[in-house]
Amino acid sequence: MTEKTNFVEIRHAQKSFGTLEVLKDISLTVERGQIVGIIGSSGSGKSTLLRAINDLDPLTGGEIWLDGVQVNKQLPHRQYEKHINEMRQHVGMVFQHFNLFPHMTARENVTMAPMLLKKISKEEANKLAEEQLENVGMLERIDYYPSQLSGGQKQRVAIARALAMKPKLMLFDEATSALDPELVEEVNQVMKNLAEQHMTMIIVTHEMDFAASVCDRVLFMDKGVVVEEGPPEVIFKTPTKDRTREFLRKHIEGAK
């Protein structure tokens, strides 16, 4: 593994479900500390691409590299499982529907994986949980169960849970799409704070304003290909491709 790679590098990613090709030869690099937004209509393949990065939806072709290590390298089954569990500890993921563990309190949600996988002590884990939950403004709800939290609060706990593993990269899969409009801002604020701390992030989102204000770079995807990419001011103000313009017109009108 001596070859020089970018922090995140996706090479010729290809993914099919049966005869349906959802990702067609996508290549993408992300530098350390960079924040990349992916926009596009549903079915464009943006979530599939994101989920391929930590192998939730394994690619059928192409390579994914993270910090000099190939995520989806060819290994015998058992070794691959071990490798991928290791890789995933470095990649945090936040889901549209939170996927908090309902049978655990906010504290337990945060401490479970570090205690199990990093073998940290209970005291350390508790300190970690307090620290991470404070960061997302959820310290006073530390011993609440998910059923006692609002959607925005759940998502903030989910972010704290992912951050507790000290990931190198954070993936956000439409983190605010399932939230009531008045709860979106509190989650966006947490993500903005992360951006200020120079966390490397890949964000799949429906919210153009948020993408414009936070991302260093925006990709527009359609039908399994990256149609256009560039700095947000270019993509949102002066897109060059018809398909991008069409999407933005619909989307910004739709938002109004």
Binding site: N54, L56, E81, K82, N85, E86, M87, R88, Q89, V91, G92, M93, F95, N99, L100, F101, M112, A113, L116, L117, A158, R161, A162, M165
Partner: peptide, 10 residues
């Protein structure tokens, strides 16, 4: 999925 993304095995 959430558990797997945290690095837990199946």
């Amino acid at each position: 999925e959430a558990a797997r993304t945290l690095g837990l095995s199946r």
